[in-house]
Amino acid sequence: MTHKRIIITGIVFLVLAGAGTALAASNPPACSLNKADIKKLDAIQGATAIDYTGRIRAELAIRKGLLSTTLDCTIKEAKILESNINGISINDPDVQRLQQRVITQAANAVSYYESQKPGVNDLGLQGSRDFAANLKSWREGNYQPLVKQGQNLVVWSHDQTLMQTAQNRMNQVNHAMGLLSIIDNEDMQTPWKDAQGNFKNALDLNQRATMSLKLIDDPDISLNLMKSSLEALSKTYQNFFDLSEALKKVVPH
């Protein structure tokens, strides 16, 4: 029995150690970008005590170091985006296609950043400035729209769970209303009708947001539709609270 325990403990330890090593191996490179590092650039530019050539060399070294760190951060950022979008559970096949598209594009962004890294060593002073400007421009045109689509997928996915929970609640309350024979009560009618109206509105806006996502609309339009849908859903729950208060008055408890 004791031997068995030792063997099992050993196996568990090895599995955990293996998993830990695998996780560590899949982790993106470390990234540390802070103001102090950026300030080094200003400091060297203003260091008149150093001769011109020495200053230029030092500034170039700092720029290369910062560009290299920045690229590490972009790689890490894109890998996190890829991992987070990959972790979303989506049932709709059309939205699943969008999810795969975002995952692929995030992986492409990682490849792009990685392909840029070796070039940093060969840069001159003006070349490093151009390199930074080009990278920023590429991000604005390619990466940032991808981040918007990614966030929309995260929000949409959570929205569907909330919608389903609210739908279940609506069904249960609807059934209970008939059961308790209180549907005709005037105090109950108003919040119940409001709840039904707001929930219908929430469903409609959610449907429009889903279509907007599928059609790969402007991400801002999709997000605004989702926000409106959530606001309508929030109002529905406020109506539920009103209904709960009204019920307390109607039915002794």
Binding site: L33, N34, K35, D37, I38, L41, R63, L66, L67, T70, C73, T74, E77, S128, R129, A132, A133, L135, K136, R139
Partner: peptide
């Protein structure tokens, strides 16, 4: 410092 802030500065 954000990535884009760093790139802007660089």
């Amino acid at each position: 410092v954000s990535i884009d802030e760093a790139l802007d500065k660089l």
